[in-house]
């Protein structure tokens, strides 16, 4: 039987794609910043993390009488964390929620060296959430008021619960891997269409970078879909895995959301990948990072909007 197994496996391996195709893709990728790679599939957690913050608060509103005299709100900085099954951070967003509920979110690549002993973001939350918030404050120069973390694996159910998210594609595109195809222009994605949309990298002009853009566009649109009516279901979908800090008063926080949430997203520029102690990561210039964050938070930065590839 062993010979048969050997032949069968060899036949399977024989199906492999032409290595020249892969070589060409590798050469193309060489000239790009590797940021998209780091985000990978996992960036979609970001949307789930956003939901984790917004949902419990919206939900509270539905259970209580409308706040007739809502207290004056201050802007709050909330760290949104998407974790994998082993509680490692896969997606990290620094989000400023303004008094009117609008939000500015900055994606922080998880492989930035940021810990006090030079660790990358990715393992800090699991060690101690306070280590992560301290590292983010150190890098961005901005205070983290609260954090919320959600498990990425919950995201599929969350996306289904909002009943569809509108996105806009610049061109019609087919993913050779999943076979999914999307027409050009505005369209509403739901259920099974969501993951192929968020995961596609092949057949896109900028590969992984386009994938990151897609995920950010999805996040912005997704946040707008959260309403009083779907909040309960969304909350149930994520409630088992959401964690947030003890010092947070979600009811007070919620008073700011009076309608659909406007979200602006951007990504912290991190430069070229470097290797430290044998670990691959990013070491953005601290002064430039702080400047970028300040500009984004003060609304001076350019928002990434419109149709994506």
């Amino acid at each position: 039987m062993n010979d048969l197994i050997r032949q069968a496996i060899a036949a399977e391996a024989e199906e492999r794609v032409d290595s020249r195709t892969v070589l060409a893709n590798l050469h193309k990728a060489k000239n790009r910043k590797p940021m998209g790679l780091i985000f990978g599939v996992a960036t979609l957690t970001v949307a789930a993390a956003a939901a984790a913050v917004i949902i419990p608060t919206t939900l509270k509103k539905t259970e209580t009488a409308p706040l007739a005299n809502a207290p004056a709100q201050e802007a709050q900085n909330v760290l949104l964390i998407g974790t994998d099954d082993e509680r490692l951070t896969d997606a990290l967003l620094f989000a400023r929620f303004e008094a009117d509920g609008s939000a500015t979110m900055i994606s922080l690549p998880r492989d930035v060296y940021a810990g006090s002993s030079g660790e990358r973001f990715t393992g800090l939350f699991r060690e101690d959430p306070r280590k992560l918030t301290a590292a983010v404050e150190n890098l961005t120069g901005a205070k983290v008021d609260h954090y919320a973390a959600v498990q990425m694996s919950d995201f599929g159910r969350v996306a289904t619960a909002v009943g569809g998210v509108e996105v806009c594609l610049a061109n019609a595109v087919t993913d050779p891997r999943t076979g999914a195809s999307f027409p050009a222009g505005k369209q509403v994605l739901s259920g099974d269409q969501v993951l192929p949309f968020l995961r596609q990298r092949m057949n896109l002009p900028h590969g992984d970078l386009d994938r990151v853009k897609r995920q950010q566009a999805f996040l912005a649109s997704f946040a707008k879909k959260i309403t009083k009516d779907n909040a309960m279901e969304l909350f149930q979908q994520v409630s088992r895995s959401v964690e947030y800090d003890d010092g947070w008063d979600p009811l007070l926080f919620s008073a700011r959301f009076q309608g659909p949430v406007q979200v602006r997203t951007s990504t912290l520029p991190v430069g070229e990948a470097v290797v430290r102690n044998g670990v691959h990561g990013f070491a953005p210039d601290p002064a430039q990072a702080k400047k970028f964050v300040e500009e984004q938070l003060s609304g001076k930065g350019t928002a990434e909007t419109g149709c994506v590839n």
Partner: peptide, 10 residues
């Protein structure tokens, strides 16, 4: 083969 290509490239 497509998943394999994706993984190897990454």
């Amino acid at each position: 083969k497509h998943l394999a290509q994706d993984i190897v490239q990454n």
